[in-house]
Amino acid sequence: MGRLISAEFRKILTTRLWWALAIPAVLLAVGWAWGVSAFVTDIADDVADSDLLATTGIEVSDMSWSVLALTRAMNIATIFPMVFGALALASEINRKTITTTFLTASSRASVLGAKAITYTIWGLVYGVVVAGAASLGTVLGSNPDYLPEGGDWFLVLMSGIIACVLWTLLGMGVGALLGSPVGALVLLLVYASFVGPVGELILFGVTEGSHLTGWMPNGSANGLTGATASEVLFGQVQEIVGNNAVLAQADIEDFDIGVRFAAGAPGAYSLWVSGLIFLGWTMIFFVSGLLRNQRRDIT
């Protein structure tokens, strides 16, 4: 297995794909985090200046609004590790290097196992890089008052890194299942960037704010990052409200839904539940892709 993992690393490092995807991932994460945090800062500044909150005694700067920028930026940048994973096996099938790969391994299962381990590591690498880029963008764009504390910051980044790893493996599973890079990329990109988010909005509206969207692959992935951010904000609100007791419980729940919406995860479950649901989706695609290749005739 060690030999095959080493071979997989060489395959990745001797071609350009890994940095060709890492560069736009970094640029997108920095830019997105910068833009969102600047936007959030503008709104929060406006709200802080209004009389509305003054009467409740809530300080807007007690809230770390910029976690929204962190989470949104990482969420959008997961597309790149997903593409990277999707090409792991599909491009080998397409370029026919899979023949030699299977001929030089003791079994197909060992090849796919080695790929799973290798791409988990690469998913982590992408996750860390994207986390760093999103943090940089957030620092650049945000009012320092709205930056989260170290612990919360770390929690959001961790959830983003886990999302990157799982998206990589999910992409790999879909690629292995379809066996075609174009098919896998079109399917994944259309779903992750259009069908998923729009469909979840519609589903969220139609089912009147149910958690159904949190069960979808994209919804649960967004929940993984989005719910973390909204929990941070929600916790802060509860703390403030606990001291004030001005806002009713219903308002707090409305706030929770609103913040989840703003974090890009309407109807999502909490961090751990979302993470487990998304892990389940990843496993479904990954295992079925693996089984598909166990039987595939390489002609």
Partner: peptide, 21 residues
């Protein structure tokens, strides 16, 4: 046909050197 077009001949062989030890 079983070659990645942008991988060099030496790198191609080294990938499989690693795989077979």
């Amino acid at each position: 046909q079983g070659f990645h077009p942008s991988r060099t001949a030496r790198d191609h062989l080294r990938v499989y050197c690693a795989a077979m030890g």
